[in-house]
Design a binder for these strands. Structure first.
Length: 391
DNA sequence: ACTCTGCATCAAGACGTA
DNA sequence: ATAATTGATGCAGAGT
DNA sequence: TACGTCC
């Protein structure tokens, strides 16, 4: 569930922290991506049939094993590398204990959904069945292992997070190992990601722009330090604690501005109007956000290598039944992109991504590229007035 | 009048060709 | 046994 | 850009 309403709050109170961009402007940027989330998307979206058809089915290999996740991952990753982006995928470990309660709630909800799904099956309601199928998608260990194998063959680095992938991505950004965390989950900011990149994947052919959210500007424009921001996020509602009933985005922001910390807020809160929930262990939650169980950057070695051509053919074509010419053309793109990436880095032709501020009018002329360091330095300083648009 | 809850609903990828 | 999304948006209804 | 197809 991320942080409840955080995106909207940032839109309203820290619009300058958001810049819109497109993928090619992320040239040479290392980006940490939550792999499990991506696999979900592919398993849900890469289907055939469904619309008035018998049932929505995944793509499969000869023996009926799902290949949707591999199809999606292969092409998406190529697309990113083709644009000069250097993705690395971070896989989930065990969820933290604090999440147990939240997970139990979801389990209950799921049970409910399954009941409804069964009823639909009995009624032969194909539309509802298809909807239900999307809710029962699971990312299995097998999916995960196959995804890792594919990425490794493609020469793309893979990271195993001890706990939440989101937290690991955030730390990698925070410590400068990557430029940002590519995610839809606003938790990333609470975990300290210097830059959060949303909608990284469904832009390009689509009309949705990529949005970069810069944490230091968020803090600056909200007028909060990181501790206060974290406390506010807990108030807004996160995966790790119940929130206080009656406190939404407006009052949460007010309260943190007024009192500065959860301790002070609770001290001054009318507990008859706003009872503190039983399991409101905000001290531990705060600690979890501040120091999640993740690997430090010093223990992670990110290397983008040439693709293993034979390995990819063996895996995708021989084992998974992919069309050989498609796989080969994908490999060609990978090889080609790697070459230009290295060359352009030497030229340092591109500096910082050309961005445009969210509130600026759409039509704008002139280009203004700014200089910035290459390769994986997190943007520690606030974004200035860098206007400029594609041509 | 504003704020929040709770509920419902919805959509969720990418390629190549025409 | 081995998996348990999510965010956005819209609405009615109630609390402040 | 729309649409059938990817496996």
């Amino acid at each position: 569930m991320g942080i409840h309403g955080l995106q909207k709050l940032i839109n309203d109170h820290a619009p300058g922290a958001i810049t819109e961009t497109e993928m090619k402007n992320l040239f040479n940027r290392k980006i940490a991506i939550d792999a499990t989330m991506s696999l979900y998307q592919f398993l849900i979206a890469v289907r055939i049939g469904g619309e008035g058809q018998p049932a929505a089915a995944n793509l499969t290999d000869e023996s009926g094993e799902t290949t949707s996740h591999l199809q999606g991952l292969f092409h998406r990753t190529i697309r990113m590398i083709n644009n000069g982006v250097k993705p690395c995928y971070v896989f989930d470990g065990k969820p933290p204990d604090l999440k147990a309660e939240e997970l139990a709630k979801r389990a209950a909800k799921r049970e409910e959904a399954e009941k409804n799904g069964k009823e639909a099956t009995e009624a032969g309601d194909t539309e509802t069945i298809a909807k239900f199928a999307k809710r029962t998608v699971k990312v299995t260990r097998k999916h995960t292992e196959e995804a890792k194998r594919l990425l490794t063959l493609m020469g793309v680095p893979v990271v195993d997070s001890p706990t939440e992938a989101e937290a690991q991505c955030a730390r990698m950004a925070k410590e400068g190992l990557v430029y940002g965390a590519g995610s839809e989950d606003m938790d990333s900011l609470t975990f300290g990601a210097s830059v959060l990149i949303r909608h990284l994947t469904f832009s390009e052919a689509r009309k949705m722009p990529i949005k970069e959210i810069n944490l230091s500007v968020v803090l600056e424009q909200l007028g909060l330090d990181m501790n206060q921001f974290t406390d506010m996020c807990i108030l807004l509602g996160c995966d790790y604690a119940d929130s206080i009933k009656g406190i939404g985005p407006v009052r949460a922001f007010d309260l943190i501005k007024k009192h500065g910390s959860l301790e002070e807020i609770i001290k001054n809160l009318d507990s008859t109007k706003y009872p503190i929930p039983e399991s409101f262990d905000y001290v531990r939650v705060r600690q979890l956000f501040k120091e999640p169980d993740t690997l430090p950057a010093s223990q992670i070695d990110l290397k983008w290598k040439d693709p293993d051509e034979e390995g990819l053919i063996e895996f995708l074509v021989k084992e998974k039944g992919f069309a050989e010419d498609r796989v080969k053309s994908g490999i060609e793109k990978l090889k080609k992109s790697r070459g230009t990436s290295v060359q352009n880095r030497l030229d340092s032709y591109f500096g910082a991504p050309v961005k445009r501020k969210l509130e600026e009018p759409k039509k704008e002329k002139g280009k203004g590229a700014k200089k910035a360091k290459t390769g994986g330095k997190a943007a520690a300083s606030p974004v200035k007035k860098g206007a400029g648009k594609k041509k």
